[in-house]
Design a protein around this nucleic acid. Structure first.
Length: 293
DNA sequence: ACCCTCACCTGCACGC
DNA sequence: TGCGTGCAGGTGAGGG
């Protein structure tokens, strides 16, 4: 169920745990996780690759892989090619329930462990996913930015490209409602249902307003609110990332939601009851007074 | 090009 | 206890 802040924490935890490790073997228990590749081909491609880095693009986790020795200094590497030129990237999207675990050799595999990476330190990196929506794909590092799914993504929310002007421009060309639009990763990157709702509350803008009907002032307020909500979440997420106990993003993080899952409760600003409506199976929460149409 | 609904899955909380 | 319903922090396909 992660949105950008949770994915960011998974990336940091993975980076601390597995960069420099080599994949000895791979186990795939759910072929559709890696489709259209087959498990046997996937395993063969990953075998003996070293994890050279872990990063993120939107909600995609990028596990960078190279030949062993990719992390060595130039002198140690001798005349072998740098990793970047032959590197692969394992793209992972957690979707709703995807999680990574880092297990030692005694720990039992929990239910829904669809992929297991055996590392050269007797440990296993495990991908679990109760609802089976998550996906994994291998792509050549050199073509990452042209890879389907990555190429279409909007600019990173903390990049210079994601400016008030950018937001005004994409809003101008659409009649969709804010709530729908903010979830479109090709327009605004990183928000999911919770942070979209929270950003709108913070900006005091009605979720059902068409994006092309927003005043410049409101666009600027929303732009700030998006960055603030994401940044606040990244700063305040705690727990669930403890390497000694294995890690997953999780149930343990601090909740600071002001409207999400607060239907019927008093608005923190004005005391009005928070409302909820569902459309397409997704809940929108808002304060009818602070976020008037 | 857009917009909506549904489909993909499992599991949990709820009411009867 | 069971069984039906609605809902869960995501996205893509397929229809209009």
């Amino acid at each position: 169920m992660p949105e950008l802040p949770e994915v960011e924490h998974v990336v940091r935890a993975l980076r601390r745990a597995v960069v420099g490790r080599t994949i000895i073997a791979t186990e795939i228990n759910l072929p559709k996780l890696i489709a259209p590749t087959t498990p046997s081909l996937f395993k063969r491609k990953l075998k003996n690759l070293t994890i050279t880095g872990v990063s993120r693009r939107g909600k995609f986790i990028l596990i960078e892989l190279g030949r062993p020795g990719a992390l060595l200094s130039d002198a140690e590497r001798g005349n072998r090619k740098p990793a970047r030129q032959q590197g692969q990237v394992l793209l992972v999207h957690l979707r709703m329930t995807g999680k990574f675990l880092y297990l030692n050799s005694e720990e039992e595999l929990p239910k829904h462990s669809h992929a297991v990476f055996y590392l050269d330190n007797e440990r296993r990196l495990v991908f679990r996913d109760q609802r089976q929506f998550g996906i994994m794909r291998l792509a050549p590092a050199a073509q990452l930015s042209q890879t389907k799914g990555i190429a279409e993504l909007a600019p990173e929310p903390f990049s210079e490209e994601f400016s008030v002007d950018y937001l005004r421009e994409v809003f101008r060309r659409s009649t969709r409602s804010l709530k729908t639009f903010l979830l479109d990763q090709t327009r605004v990157l990183g928000l999911g249902n919770i942070y979209a709702v929270e950003a709108l509350f913070r900006a005091r803008i009605n979720p059902f307003r068409p994006v092309n009907k927003l005043s410049a002032k409101r666009v600027a307020r929303l732009h700030a609110a998006i960055q603030e909500v994401l940044d606040f979440a990244i700063q305040h997420i705690r727990g669930g990332f403890n390497l000694e106990e294995g890690f997953s993003y999780g149930e343990a993080f601090e909740r600071f939601w002001q409207v999400y899952e607060r239907e019927g409760e008093a608005c923190v600003n004005c005391g009005t009851r928070i409302r909820r409506i569902t459309h397409g199976g997704r809940s929108t929460y808002w304060c009818p007074r602070c976020q008037r149409r």
